[in-house]
Structure formats: structure tokens, C-alpha cells
Amino acid sequence: MTITCNGESVRIAARTIAALLQQRLGAAQPDGVAVAVNGEVVPRSVWSAPLLCDGDVVDVVTAVQGG
């Protein structure tokens, strides 16, 4: 299955956000991170649910220095 994560095409084996985050960031439940799928925030409480579908557009964000 292929999704778009932060603008890059990514092949994933599992359909959970937790697995995606483990693959991309090396942690399944990283602190200070939020995820949107197709423009909707997905709460941390369902990161272990198999909700990702082929072609989904996923954004993974965190806090950076900013004014």
C-alpha cells in the first residue's frame, strides 16, 4: 500500500498511524506530534487502529521554533 506522508510517497505494510510513525520517526507514540489524514486531525487515541487506506495523504507535524 502506498500513501503520501509529508509530501513523499511512502510504502507501508501496516495500516496504522503508529506503524507509520515507527517507520518514519522511530517511535510509535512520539511526544509533541500530531497527525492529519486527508486534512482531518486523527487523535492519538486511534493511532493503533488500522485506518490508513491506499492513496491517503498524511501529514505528521511537530513544534518547531517560531514567532
Binding site: 509529508n6 511537530t62 518547531v64 517560531g66
Partner: peptide, 20 residues
């Protein structure tokens, strides 16, 4: 204290959050 939200490519950015 303000922060911005940006795409995370690694968790190195997280060190800001730990300082805050």
C-alpha cells in the same frame, strides 16, 4: 512562548519541546 507547527522529518526537533 510561541512555537510553529511544521512537518516532522525526525524527532531531533523535539528537543525544543523538551527545553520549553
Amino acid at each position: 512562548v510561541t512555537v510553529s507547527m511544521r512537518r516532522a522529518s525526525s524527532l531531533a526537533d523535539g528537543s525544543l519541546l523538551s527545553v520549553l
